[in-house]
Amino acid sequence: MAQLPFIAAIDAGIHQEMRRDPSVLYFGQNLATTENHPFVAAYGHERVRVTPISETAEIGIAIGAAMAGLRPVVELYMAEFMLVAMDQVLNEAPRFRYMSGGQVKVPLVLKAGFGFAAGWAGQHTGSLTALFMGVPGLKVVVPSTAADAKGLMATAIRDDNPVVFLHHYLLTLEHGEVPDGEHLVPFGKAEIRRAGGDVTIVATGWMVPRSLAAAEKLAAEGIQAEVIDPRTVAPLDLATILKSVAKTGRLVLVDQAPRHATVAGIIAGDVAEHGFSSLKAPIIQVTARDATVPYSEPLEAYVIPDEERIIAAVRAVLKAGR
């Protein structure tokens, strides 16, 4: 085990796979511009390349390389930059295996940061996770710890499907224990970050530490929250969430996206359909307020869910129902 910042853990996952598999490529804008770049030094320009600012071509090239047998990882930096190339992400990469009747595989990773609520204003702060999760053929990964960042990246690279790997920018420098050597985290397996019997909280990305902090404050009042981090939202480990709800009967979903663009809404629908008999109170969703993320600091904080809103939601869900 080593203490590593989240961002270094992602790199460790990419290195782990590039060392063992010569078919893994890594490319994107503003990387590999000198021979000293650690990935260039280790694997050479054949596999590690800088690209122009051409997201459609970058992602499209990854698709073609993947269909031809390689495993590209595209460094996109910010999830919004995928919006420039949305056809490639949503309507090319996940379609080819299906449309070819299973003849091709499209193993690629689209690595992008998201949710940079640190004064980046309206166009670099979005939480677009839900946009990707409903597309058949696409997998969507949202690590919240350094260890998962490494293990999920490695699993994403080995996966034979296109994977959108979304890492939260505000976790970039968070340190955590990261296993040395080969480390893989399975897809579709949620992690219970904190056990509790009174209420279930489900959160991803930066909302996980916020929910854990809220849970600690609630514990001081004698309220025990169970905090679940799905880690991958496609595939989604609904079973772990339903099991927890069966125990607690109360569910709070925390999501950094605006009200009608959340993963939370999709989980709420599934729990309402499959776990209704367990619920003792209506599900509460804590989401961003319906606005573009503002620049000014107090306004930004007002729009995005914080500990206080999570705590208020837990109190409300405990008061409601039977």
Binding site: L25, T56, A57, E58, I59, G60, I61, A62, I63, G64, A65, A66, M67, A68, G69, L70, P72, Q88, E92
Partner: peptide, 9 residues
Amino acid sequence: PHAAGAAWA
């Protein structure tokens, strides 16, 4: 771009 990716391979 898919063709270019296959050409990289």
